[in-house]
Each structure stands twice: as structure tokens, then as C-alpha cells.
């Protein structure tokens, strides 16, 4: 579904991604972990071109999206993203946050979009919040709504950029729960996170990044019980 070929990215002289080649299949839940500054967020943000790669190619559903003249907006409709800081639109109600994109892009009529949004909100137990503004709800609720907002576009894959890192500890669980449900439904997910429990239980594959490259990867059990690379061993000994 997503093919990354020799991806590199530098900010000025600072080389952040150093030639990454990776394929993500439909239905996979790929979890990316690594120390801060390892390039994992940049890698994720390159996948939907929020960062412009300096080298290499990204193919999505058989199309080279790094080629010139590609309609990146159309690509992003199929690639949802959830941010560390939620980035809900504070001037719009929860309902409007969810329906803005599908209605503006004429994917759905306003009535369809609202019906769909209500169904999604009910699923995460926040139907009563439809008409409030994001300023009056908790961080965990914001992030669940941000996930629903991404879902409203019916994406084929969702990218999660440290979705629980800005949350109070007691709210991490509710967000992970929604992500777990999504995973169970077969959504393709790429998740940058520090939640090792989530990586182990939900991930189908875990990537360890350091110094702008993928140092090691494996299915979760093997990954956590038999790490090979000394840097991964060192990292896991600190976080587990």
C-alpha cells in the first residue's frame, strides 16, 4: 500500500532521514519507536508529504506521490493523520470539525456527513459533545474526536504521530482503546508512539529508528523478547 524508496530528508545541514526503504501492506499496524530526534516523526510526516522529502520516492496505492504534478490533496483524502497536539479547529464545534472536510471537498452532503459524524461520535461515546467547542472538553476526548475527524474522510490508512504523548496519564487509555478498536476492524495504521504496551499488543510489526534509519524491525513478540541491535537493546532497557 505504501512503498518508501530510499527516502531522505534534511533540514539545512541536519540530515534527519538517511535513506529509508520500507513497504507497508494493507491491514498492517506498523508501530515506529525510537529515541527522540531519531527521525520517526519526520518519517511519518513524509508519508503524507507534510514534510517534503529531499530524496527518494514514496508510492501510495501504486502511484508515485513524490512525482511532480501529483494532486497531493487527493492523496491525503485517503491518508488520515492524527497529531500529538490534536489540532482540532477551536472555532468550530465538534460536529463541524468532523464534517468540514467531507462537506468542503464534496465527498458527502451536509446531511450525510452529519449523520456519519453522529454515528462515529456514538461509537466513541461522545455523541453528547457534538455541539460543543473543543475548548470545553478534555485532552483524551479531543484526541478521540481528532481520530473520528480523520475517519470521517474514509481513509485507507491513518498515520498517528505520538497520539498519546500530550495527554494526562489517566487519559491515555481511552485513546489507545479507540485505536485498538480501529486496528481490530482492519484499518491500516502507522503509529509513532512511546506506548510499548500498545506496540506489543496491537502492532503487527515494530520498527526501531535511530539516527535517521530503521535499525531493526520484527513482529512484536520477537522484537521485544529478542532484540538484536545493541542500540535497540539499550533503548528497550531504558523504556521497559
Amino acid at each position: 500500500m505504501i512503498e518508501v524508496k530510499n527516502l531522505s530528508k534534511s533540514f539545512g545541514d541536519n540530515m534527519v532521514l538517511n535513506g529509508i526503504t520500507e513497504t507497508i501492506q494493507k491491514g498492517e499496524k506498523v508501530v515506529v519507536i525510537g529515541p527522540s530526534g531519531s527521525g520517526k516523526s519526520t518519517f511519518l510526516r513524509c508519508l503524507n508529504l507534510l514534510e517534503t522529502p529531499t530524496g527518494g520516492e514514496i508510492w501510495f496505492e501504486g502511484k508515485n506521490i513524490t512525482a511532480k504534478g501529483v494532486d497531493i490533496d487527493a492523496v491525503r483524502c485517503k491518508m488520515g493523520m492524527v497529531f500529538q497536539h490534536f489540532n482540532l479547529f477551536p472555532h468550530l464545534t465538534v460536529m463541524q470539525n468532523i464534517t468540514l472536510a467531507p462537506v468542503t471537498l464534496k465527498r458527502q452532503t451536509k446531511a450525510e456527513a452529519e449523520q456519519n459524524a453522529r454515528r462515529l461520535l456514538e461509537r466513541i461515546g461522545l455523541a453528547d459533545k457534538a455541539d460543543v467547542y473543543p475548548g470545553s472538553i478534555s485532552g483524551g476526548q479531543k484526541q478521540r474526536i481528532a481520530i473520528v475527524r480523520a475517519l470521517a474522510m474514509n481513509p485507507d490508512v491513518i498515520l498517528f504521530d505520538e497520539p498519546t504523548s500530550a495527554l494526562d496519564p489517566e487519559m491515555v487509555g481511552e485513546v489507545l482503546e479507540v485505536m485498538r478498536e480501529l486496528a481490530d476492524e482492519g484499518m491500516t495504521m502507522v503509529v509513532v508512539t512511546h506506548e510499548m504496551g500498545f506496540a506489543r499488543e496491537v502492532g503487527t510489526r515494530v520498527l526501531f529508528m535511530d539516527g535517521g534509519v530503521i535499525v531493526e524491525q520484527n513482529e512484536p513478540n520477537e522484537f521485544f523478547s529478542h532484540p538484536q541491535n545493541p542500540r535497540l537493546k539499550d533503548f528497550l532497557s531504558k523504556v521497559l
Binding site: 483524502c77 488520515g80 489540532n87 482540532l88 481528532a146 480523520a150
Partner: peptide, 12 residues
């Protein structure tokens, strides 16, 4: 982040 969120949803 507001611009990024908008763009990530496919808005121009």
C-alpha cells in the same frame, strides 16, 4: 498545527 491538520484532511 491548524494548517497541517487542514491539509492532512485533504483540504487545499
Amino acid at each position: 498545527g491548524q494548517m497541517e491538520a487542514g491539509r492532512s484532511l485533504g483540504l487545499s
